Simulated scan of single mutants.
Amino acid sequence: MQCRVDVAVMIGSGVPASLRAMGQSVCWVVLLDGERRGTAFSSREEAQACRAVWLAQLNAGTPDSLH
């Protein structure tokens, strides 16, 4: 089964309170087949790095426990 891994931006009230408390009004999240996985990232680069790890694990045939 082919999984889709994306990075999405969250703005305003979608940003977790912990990041808003630090002055962040934007964050990025990783989506696996449209569902958020893991934490919110304060930079797009961090989210892209996480996405790359997900893709590598999925391409290596990591067990379905990741889903």
Score class of each variant (00 low, 15 high):
27 C>L: 12
67 H>K: 07
43 S>H: 09
44 R>E: 14
46 E>H: 09
51 R>S: 01
39 T>W: 02
50 C>K: 09
66 L>N: 00
59 N>S: 14
62 T>N: 04
12 G>I: 05
7 V>I: 12
19 L>N: 03
33 D>A: 01
6 D>W: 11
9 V>G: 11
62 T>K: 07
16 P>S: 11
38 G>Q: 05
19 L>R: 03
36 R>W: 01
14 G>K: 13
51 R>K: 15
27 C>H: 11
34 G>P: 06
46 E>L: 13
27 C>N: 14
21 A>L: 09
53 V>L: 06
55 L>I: 09
64 D>M: 04
49 A>S: 14
67 H>N: 04
58 L>I: 15
3 C>S: 06
20 R>Y: 05
12 G>P: 05
28 W>Y: 14
47 A>L: 08
24 Q>V: 12
1 M>C: 09
39 T>S: 10
42 S>A: 12
19 L>T: 03
46 E>P: 00
12 G>D: 12
21 A>T: 03
19 L>P: 10
56 A>E: 10
13 S>A: 14
12 G>H: 05
37 R>Y: 01
61 G>N: 02
6 D>C: 01
1 M>G: 14
17 A>P: 03
26 V>D: 01
28 W>G: 08
67 H>D: 02
48 Q>S: 05
4 R>S: 12
18 S>M: 06
7 V>T: 15
65 S>I: 00
26 V>H: 10
53 V>K: 02
7 V>Q: 07
28 W>Q: 07
41 F>P: 02
7 V>L: 07
44 R>M: 06
31 L>T: 07
15 V>W: 09
40 A>S: 15
53 V>C: 03
51 R>H: 01
10 M>T: 08
64 D>I: 03
11 I>V: 15
57 Q>A: 11
40 A>I: 07
59 N>F: 02
19 L>Q: 14
66 L>A: 01
23 G>T: 13
20 R>V: 05
30 V>Q: 07
52 A>G: 05
54 W>T: 02
27 C>Q: 12
38 G>T: 08
54 W>A: 02
59 N>E: 14
62 T>P: 00
22 M>P: 00
26 V>R: 13
49 A>Y: 01
4 R>F: 02
39 T>G: 05
65 S>A: 05
23 G>S: 10
51 R>D: 00
18 S>D: 07
17 A>L: 06
65 S>Y: 06
8 A>C: 04
16 P>R: 07
20 R>L: 09
44 R>H: 15
11 I>W: 10
23 G>I: 15
14 G>M: 14
23 G>K: 11
44 R>K: 15
54 W>M: 09
55 L>K: 02
43 S>T: 15
24 Q>Y: 15
28 W>I: 13
49 A>K: 11
64 D>P: 03
32 L>Q: 03
27 C>P: 11
36 R>N: 01
64 D>L: 02
13 S>R: 13
56 A>T: 07
38 G>K: 11
18 S>Y: 08
49 A>L: 09
6 D>V: 01
38 G>H: 07
34 G>H: 07
36 R>Q: 14
17 A>D: 13
9 V>S: 08
57 Q>F: 01
60 A>T: 06
31 L>H: 08
16 P>N: 11
9 V>M: 13
43 S>D: 09
39 T>N: 10
6 D>L: 08
12 G>T: 09
50 C>W: 05
11 I>Y: 10
45 E>N: 12
67 H>P: 00
39 T>D: 10
